[in-house]
Each structure stands twice: as structure tokens, then as C-alpha cells.
Design a protein around this nucleic acid. Structure first.
Lengths: 160, 160
DNA sequence: AGGAAGTAGTTGCGTTTGCAACGAAGAACG
DNA sequence: CGTTCTTCGTTGCAAACGCAACTACTTCCT
């Protein structure tokens, strides 16, 4: 009985996915032609670089949660557009370091107002303390899920 | 000054997007070959239909937040796989109604345990009342953003 | 030191995606 | 009624995506 009791609307899986996409698409609409040609993968890469410049390409793969090839080609395009540069890491020549150009850094100042406006409207009238708790929960989930991605299920650490 | 003060990690835009994608990809890994060939768009469609069967194709377009064409082709594939059926709505022959087949309904019972397990691990040790508040905030955002999508900025309702 | 194993990034291929142009069905106006 | 306007779904096309095979470089092991 009650086999259909589960409602996606009560699920953080559903909610985070939909709200995330709705916010992104709303911001994208606001930005309009300022972000012409910048796909979601590009935006994901940029956000990471805004937090920390000079990341390795591999860092972006795991952070943005897209395929190696997808990131490689996204970076290729971003480089063509003059938004990032790629430099071989001389300390370990397998790695490439990704750096923002001035144009790439400037995109942050372009996007930020739109993002803030979008958030403001979506959160209008909600108690700030509840919003803060929501963020805290999501931050913890983010941290945990990311760690799991890095160290997926230690199989048997008991063997000699 | 402090022009770089803004940190994406403090932003619900970033958090919802990343957590949503991390959860989805984690669930997908758990489900493994049970969902072979089911892309994220397919899953999005299914989740909506699990909530309410017989939706119009257009409802799915706005709810899943993908292009008309993308949804059309996703449904084409799902129909080929015997997961949904499409029927012209005789009341308004422009619309098509989408119905789950038994196989489509059964997929819910296949996916649900994986989703619950994934959530459980991601939320482990967090105070339930904080998780509840997080959900509440996200639900309100979802509702508001969805409404905005349906009624985008009433331009000038004052004219005769 | 030298070969095996592992890691980072690139490339080819088939599928999916978003955009725009299109066709069919209904609604709104005279 | 008939014309125009709007809405819903389909299709062509170029770009992006995920997967898997491949190359370049490093580390580990004997």
C-alpha cells in the first residue's frame, strides 16, 4: 500500500536540479547577448576559475562534472574567444593550467548583477535565516558529494 | 573595493546547480545498466510523468526546461523503447497527451531505491529540521520561478 | 636504469541539443 | 463565414556532448 506515496517535489534531487536549471536559464535570459555563444559548460568553467584561477584542466573536469573531452573542447573555444589561456605545467608536463584573461575576469562583473537580481526575485520575502540554513545544508551536501567523487568507496583498505 | 568579495560557494545558483548535477550523476552510477540509454532529459520527463500522468507535450517542455525539439525527440525515443505513448488530444488536436506504459511506471520502482540511498548518504548526520527548511526554501523558489516562466513580466496591463 | 602501471589531455564517432523555419489546428477579429 | 493571429508539435542544421580509443608524460616497482 501507499506504493506511490513518494513525491519528487519533496525530493532534494528534484528540487536542486530544477531550481538550479531555472536560475541558470533565468540569468542567461537576463544577460542576453552579453553571453552569446557561452554554453552552460562554459559558464561552469568560468565560475570555477573565478573562485580560483590557474586550475588544472583535470580539476575542471571533476568540478564541472562533464566529460574530459567536453571540457577540452570547451576550453579550446574559450581560448579562441580570448577568455582563457592554457599553459603546460612545467612541474608536471601532463597537466595544463587554465588562466583567465582580463576579458574572462571582466565577464564576472558582467554576469554578477544579473545573477544577484535573479536570486533576489526568487528569494523575495523569504526569511533570511531560512535561506542561510538552506545554503548551509547545500554546502555540506556539496562538500560530501565532491569528496565521494574524489575517493569513491574505499574498496578494501584492510588488506596488507 | 572588495570587488572580488563575491564567492560562488555562497550562491544558491552555484550550489543548486552543482548539488543537483552531483546527485543525478551519483544516482545514475548506482542504477548502472538499469537505465542504459536514458539521458537526463529522459529522466526529467519521467519524473514529471510520475507526478502526473497524461501531461501535454508542451507541459513537459516548460517543466523540464528544454527545447521543444529536444522534448519531441526524447519522447520519440521513449516511445520506441515502450516507456511512454503519445496520443493526440481530441479536445484540442494541437496537443499531444503523454502517458506512461507499465514499463514506464515500473522504472519508478527501479530508480527510487537508488535515489533514496544517494540522498541518505549525502544528508547523513544533518539535522532533519535543517533539511526540512532547505526543502521549504527550494520549493518556494521553484514555485516562484515556474510562475515567472509562465507569466513573464506583464508588460503594460494598464493600456485599454 | 628499464619496463609496467597510472594519470592528463586529445581526437573520432554517434547521439543529443538548441535554434530557427515550418506546418497544422484552434482562437479572435471583422 | 473568412482572414489573421496565436499555439503546439515537427524537422533541418550546426554545435556540443558522452564514450572510448589513443598519445604524452610521470611514477612505481624490481
Amino acid at each position: 500500500m501507499a506504493e506511490h506515496a513518494y513525491n519528487p517535489l519533496d525530493s532534494l534531487v528534484f528540487l536542486t536540479n530544477r531550481v538550479g536549471r531555472l536560475l541558470s536559464s533565468d540569468i542567461r535570459k537576463r544577460a542576453g547577448n552579453e553571453v552569446e555563444g557561452l554554453y552552460s559548460t562554459h559558464m561552469g568553467v568560468l565560475v570555477d576559475l573565478w573562485m580560483q584561477d590557474g586550475l588544472r584542466q583535470q580539476d575542471l573536469v571533476s568540478s564541472v562534472i562533464k566529460d574530459k573531452g567536453t571540457i577540452a573542447r570547451a576550453l579550446e573555444n574559450l581560448e579562441k574567444e580570448g577568455i582563457v589561456t592554457r599553459e603546460t605545467d612545467e612541474a608536471d608536463r601532463r597537466n595544463k593550467r587554465i588562466y583567465l584573461t582580463p576579458k574572462g575576469r571582466n565577464l564576472k562583473t558582467v554576469m554578477l548583477p544579473h545573477a544577484l537580481k535573479s536570486m533576489d526575485e526568487a528569494l523575495e520575502g523569504m526569511p533570511p535565516e531560512e535561506v542561510a540554513i538552506c545554503k548551509k545544508v547545500l554546502q555540506r551536501m556539496y562538500k560530501r558529494l565532491t569528496q565521494k567523487l574524489m575517493h569513491p568507496v574505499p574498496a578494501n583498505t584492510t588488506s596488507p
